[in-house]
Amino acid sequence: MKSKSTNETIGKTLVYTVLIVFAAIMLIPFIWMITASLKFNKDIFVIPYQWFGYEPQWRNYLDIWTKIPLLTFTKNTVKLTLIVTFFQLLTSSFAAYAFAKLRFRGRDFLFLAYVATIAIPWQSYMVPQFLFMRRLGLADTHLSIIILQAFTAFGVFMMRQFYEGIPDSLCEAARIDGMSEYQIYLSIMLPLSKPALSTLTIFTFVNTWNDFLGPLIYLTSESKKTLQIGLKMFISQYSAEYGLIMAASCISLIPVVIVFLMLQKYFVAGIASSGVKG
């Protein structure tokens, strides 16, 4: 009995040591980011690196808003991210249900086609896609970014894999009870897939928030650009304002972390199992 509890203590200590070392490795770069965001540009790349004991340049956090229209960029990014995430969740979880729980001709082929297209690098079909979108009059509109991001194969693939993990017997039982497929999707699958939906929300949010190449090609007028394009504006032809980049990066990290903190509470064991019981 005694040995078991000492073992447990040792185990616990070990786990925490590992976790703390690990967290440090993860965090050092962010501490660096914050310290760099408070420096003059010329002082950032000095070796050995000064972690503290310098005069903080709080001005960087003011300059980022005046040097470029960062507020407009932030508003645009928020708008795009919310709309894309909404559509992505809706259409992906909807389509994934059919791929996971319904039988129909061509299912496997269609699914494989979905997955395989993820493998094609965007760089190779970007030009024809852009020309096509411009034909439709969508160049330099937010709608173009929404269309590009909202119907991805990725979301369908991910949701389908999570639905696979939910026992078929649940759906069968519901069908016998006379529920239509739409009802099963709405009242059984959706509530059960909260962890998966949270994951997809986080990923879509992060992806859209950090997307650079899409907005770069499609959005040309200043009033429509996004945060990530703004970040790059601090790297100009003849200079690179790393102090400002770091300051803006720190700011832009906040919303994403908030979303993550809000949604990760759904990663709690037992939702699916209680569903089975009920």
């Binding site: 030009v127 020309l131 090609i217 040309t220 394009i229 790297i235 100009s236 032809q237």
Partner: peptide, 21 residues
């Protein structure tokens, strides 16, 4: 003025001038 960014200027301009639109 249409600012296409400094770092990727040639890429973006090349794409914008592709096709005929």
């Amino acid at each position: 003025m249409v600012d296409l960014g400094s770092t990727d200027y040639s890429t973006v301009l090349g794409t914008q001038l592709s096709g005929s639109g």
